[in-house]
Simulated scan of single mutants.
Amino acid sequence: MREEIVFIKGSFNPAEAADVLLSLLNDKIKFHTVKSLKLNPGSSQSEEHSAARIGALKEAKKTVEELVLTAHKKGLDLEINSTLAIRLIDKQI
């Protein structure tokens, strides 16, 4: 089973866009940081995944900050479209 949900859709001024996008990115960074702190000793693969994901999210955050600043300087809005694709999976596979 797979569902697609429109998560974000619309035009936002730079302040609104920064609020929405940076909040999401910060929450995901926090999620992976907490997850890496709770890992059991010896699960280095999960720890490496969380560290890599945090790095990628921080890079995405820099990109968003640059886009927001550019839009602000040029007096532009940002169009944001995001869809969530959710699929049920069997954990035993």
Rank of each mutant, 00 (worst) to 15 (best):
F12K: 09
F12Y: 15
P14H: 01
A15Y: 08
E16Y: 12
E16T: 03
E16G: 04
A17Y: 01
A17N: 01
D19L: 15
D19Y: 04
D19R: 10
V20N: 00
L21E: 00
L22P: 00
S23W: 08
S23Q: 15
S23N: 13
S23K: 11
S23E: 13
S23T: 12
S23A: 13
D27S: 06
I29R: 01
K30L: 09
K30Y: 15
K30F: 08
F31I: 10
T33Y: 02
V34L: 04
V34H: 09
K35P: 02
L37S: 11
L39E: 05
N40P: 01
N40T: 15
N40W: 08
P41N: 08
G42M: 07
S43G: 12
S44N: 15
Q45K: 15
Q45T: 13
Q45A: 12
S46P: 04
S46F: 10
H49N: 14
H49P: 04
S50F: 02
A51E: 05
A51V: 02
A51L: 08
A52Q: 08
I54C: 02
G55S: 14
G55N: 14
A56P: 00
K58L: 06
K58N: 11
A60T: 05
A60L: 11
K61T: 05
K61Q: 06
K62A: 06
K62P: 00
K62R: 10
T63R: 12
T63M: 13
T63N: 12
T63K: 11
V64L: 02
V64T: 05
E65N: 03
E65H: 05
E66W: 10
E66Y: 15
E66N: 11
L67T: 06
L67S: 10
L69H: 08
A71T: 04
K74N: 13
K74W: 09
K74F: 11
K74E: 14
K74M: 11
K74T: 12
K74D: 11
L76G: 07
L76I: 12
L76W: 15
D77H: 13
E79V: 12
I80F: 08
I80N: 04
I80V: 14
N81E: 11
T83I: 10
T83R: 04
A85M: 12
A85Y: 10
A85F: 09
I86Y: 03
R87V: 15
L88T: 07
